[in-house]
Amino acid sequence: MKKHNNYLKVMTDMFLIQLFWAFGIMGVMLIIGLVRLIFHMQENGQDNLYNSFFVVATFFVFVIGVMATYYLPHYVGLGVTRKNYFKGATLALVGLTVILPFIIWGTSVITELIIENVTSFSFREPNMDVSTEDSNFIGDIVEFLIVTPFVEPESNWVLAIGIFSLKILVYYLAGWLISAAFYKFSVIAGLGAIAISIVLLTVENVLLRSILSLPIPNRFAFLEVPEGIAIVALLLIPLGMFYLIRVLTKRVSIRM
């Protein structure tokens, strides 16, 4: 009787289902892109799929991260330990962060080639720089969290893919962390987890901007640290989030 490979099964299941959802989102975005193209809804060229998905990924991976907690009862009901679920879901997430940017990039390049060959449209350079600020503090933070540092894959594909992967990782973890806090405790703890996640994501974005030498809004300038420390902190933040999620779910009671 095979008993100890349950986390690999969880990994495979979670990876495939989440990839399937990602394909669903990509399909929807392709359709939206085509509709905009056909009805000339964009005057200055067309955003490519990679750029569009880079923005949408913020919401998408956050939502599937939230759902990660709600898969736990399903797997415990099938006799999988919380630890094996955590291992499996973590490996699936790592797989997703590695594979998804490549798939999106590849799909984006192919669709761009097809569309540019059959139409006169060209794809514009994205403008995803958020360095300006106004008096709307909340709005600034939300904008800062949604529009994260971006690098064109054509300019430096390793860096671009790495940044996309990191974004998928931390936004997924934020969703997972928040839902784990809501699941284990109460609304107040859940709101606390939201606050912690906002802080961690903001710090992550500032550190990344600092490393990429991108402008940092003044109100976050105090978070700037030397590059070496920033790189270490950049990696420690997701590790810390993994740790918090494990602590929250390690002995959590399953709701029925």
């Binding site: 006799g79 330990t81 009671s253 399953i254």
Partner: peptide, 25 residues
């Protein structure tokens, strides 16, 4: 193993089932 007791013990084949992969399966 959906929940843990507050006190006392529950064992299956002399082992606590909570988070025991062999037993939970």
């Amino acid at each position: 193993s959906f929940n843990e007791q507050s006190s006392g013990s529950l064992t299956i084949n002399e082992k606590a089932p909570f988070e025991n992969a062999d037993i939970m399966q």
